[in-house]
């Protein structure tokens, strides 16, 4: 049972995700991942009692954005926060490799492909760990990024990696499970390695790879506000 990874203490029953029906179903079709429908959840086992963890809003108005609520009082909410950020990062690097900027060197291709793979692994890991408790696939909005421009791509990568580091650093204190805290720690240092390397590509052999003796630790609200322009959906953090 997928939810076994979440244990019983932080069952996802407190998660409430409302989503536009059309957007939701489209995401399921495009994403290729199983969509957690109420019926599926109900059949899924004892950890998920009614009300269902995921419910579809009746709203069928135009518009593509889902609204996702992350409850930081539960470990599932915190892990879904990480899952959301990893979805964003993975989608970004997938596009970077799919449509490389002009003049991308073989070294840069190898390097960015590695990072893409790491972020996809992170995304798929959280999807597997959360099982039926996971939030839907998010729709990125990369309209502000010029994927043909090395500078635009690397500067965006820097922003995402630094934000990821600050997000994990700031969210760790919400986790109740020591196992989840440890796994978050295993990931954040890899994000920091990415941040360092991307920064060094932008400003080689300077102090840019590590601009301060202490990294940032951002609140979920601050992180989500920073990420908001890059995500079509609306993500709300509660109980922070």
């Amino acid at each position: 049972m997928e939810l076994d990874h979440l244990g019983t203490r932080d069952a996802a029953r407190e998660e409430t995700i409302t989503a536009d029906r059309r957007r939701f179903l489209r995401a399921a079709g495009l994403g290729g991942l199983a969509l957690a429908l109420p019926g599926v959840l109900a059949a899924c086992g004892k950890e998920i009692a009614a009300p269902a963890a995921v419910k579809l809003a009746a709203n069928t108005d135009i518009g593509d954005a889902a609204t996702v609520t992350l409850n930081f009082a539960t470990d599932a909410g915190v892990l879904n926060y990480a899952y959301a950020l990893e979805q964003l990062e993975a989608a970004f690097y997938v596009q970077v490799i799919a449509s490389p900027f002009g003049g991308m060197t073989a070294t840069e291709t190898r390097f960015l492909t590695d990072i893409r793979d790491h972020e996809v692994v992170h995304r798929e890991f959280f999807a597997a760990a959360l099982g039926s408790a996971k939030i839907p696939n998010l729709t990125p909005d990369f309209s502000g990024i010029d994927f043909t421009s090395r500078s635009s791509v690397l500067r965006t990568a820097r922003a995402f990696e630094d934000l990821g580091v600050a997000a994990y650093n700031g969210a760790a204190m919400y986790l109740k499970s020591t196992a989840y805290l440890l796994v978050a720690g295993k990931i954040v240092s890899v994000e920091a390695r990415h941040a360092s390397a991307i920064r060094d590509l932008l400003e080689p052999r300077t102090s840019h790879f590590a601009p301060d003796a202490f990294d940032d630790a951002f609140s979920p609200t601050k992180v989500l506000a920073a990420a908001d322009p890059f995500i079509v959906d609306t993500i709300i953090a509660i109980n922070t």
Partner: peptide
Amino acid sequence: VLTAALTIHSVEARHAAE
């Protein structure tokens, strides 16, 4: 203290990568 330690931890990772 956890948060403070983590803000050092990730800087060590930046150093290591460089």
